[in-house]
Design a protein around this nucleic acid. Sequence first.
DNA 1: AAGTGGTCTAGACCACGAA
DNA 2: TCGTGGTCTAGACCACTTG
Lengths: 233, 233
Amino acid sequence: MSTARYEQVKEHVLRRIASGALRVSDRVPSENELVSKLKVSRMTANRALRELAEEGYLVRVAGVGTFVAERRVHAHPLEVHNIADEVRARGHEYSCKVLKLAEIEADETIAARFGLAVGARLFQSLLLHYESSTPLQLEDRYVNALLVPGYLKVDFTRQTPHEYLMHQAPLHRAEHTVQAIVPDARIAKLLKLGPSEASLLVRRRTWSNDKLATIADLYYPGSRYELSGTFKP
Amino acid sequence: MSTARYEQVKEHVLRRIASGALRVSDRVPSENELVSKLKVSRMTANRALRELAEEGYLVRVAGVGTFVAERRVHAHPLEVHNIADEVRARGHEYSCKVLKLAEIEADETIAARFGLAVGARLFQSLLLHYESSTPLQLEDRYVNALLVPGYLKVDFTRQTPHEYLMHQAPLHRAEHTVQAIVPDARIAKLLKLGPSEASLLVRRRTWSNDKLATIADLYYPGSRYELSGTFKP
DNA sequence: AAGTGGTCTAGACCACGAA
DNA sequence: TCGTGGTCTAGACCACTTG
């Protein structure tokens, strides 16, 4: 089984952009040119260019041509970022306090979210991430002990879970939900929230090799954090 | 100019889901069945079903069939969707109440967000979108009167702003921020929120032809709405 | 064996924009 | 007028699942 032809065409165009052969606003080979150069049918060339345009890499104008799109300005808010990099990119000091780091057995709730049996071995970490001495994110994370056996030995004041996990179990898929909640007293205290301040809760599940590697509940102070992003159709 | 055939097929399937004729996990007509019933080619049926699957409405399994997807999670937070389609795809009834629809002059705040002069002509709509008689989204929208002159004449109980604007000023770029807030009393009442319930605020700015066409503040009940997204590296 | 989705082709017609 | 993207068709081959 080989890759689909339209995927090969997509990769061909992306490589030409990556190599610098095609730059922003350059004209990309037309469908007919791809037909003769790459020996594919026009429907195949069309699907390749259409999907690249949907994904934001190209801009197509009927009657004119296809062009390399401008680079997407901002990162997608639901991409998996390293919070330490984010903070430092804003020119602030990053630090982290480890509130909990332990092996646990999955109770019913966690087992259901993980799709594992009750009593399965898990590691849990509860970390508070600071931006220049202000709490920015409370991270409550559960990790599949079988996939990431060394998790308990990590010094999370020196290395974020993101950095460690990217090495141990590179993610293949991530799923997020975003909710607004009024946090309970414990969370409000940790995040130094005012009495009637909301919190943004991002629940993330991350898969590695089709196995659920980690679940993270990320709490942000509603007043001090915004997810943002740009979308091009 | 008529709508593309594959779009008609997509709408046909979405309508059958909306009407309840197709429920979650039901089998959707196969490509070959659509070919004979709707008199389209298989490539056209394929594109329709493939795109609906990409958009999360359907799940396809090679060798087995196409099925209505579970939709407990909601739209991708940073894509611009039609809320009526979303609600109907979940098999619920969509309705909309128009709370305000008027021409206004930009005050300082709005003028700054729009990048226009104070006193510029704008249209404002305040709409409450319902999912089966439960408020799902409060939409406070400002529209550039020069770009969309007919906005005040639209019957938003029959057509969402999304549907109308996609025709009048197709979006080229959208920018979002997502926040958690504790809403004021007016918003809480409209969304039928409990006393200590948070709200998700999505602020969206949409450009058409490099001109800022519309600004929308979208309020969701924190307890009844989740934004979700899947990320593949 | 029959049906499904996944893909690919060669050819076609259209509206549009540029020369 | 010519090239472009946008769409559509009829038919084909494949791998896979299910009865």
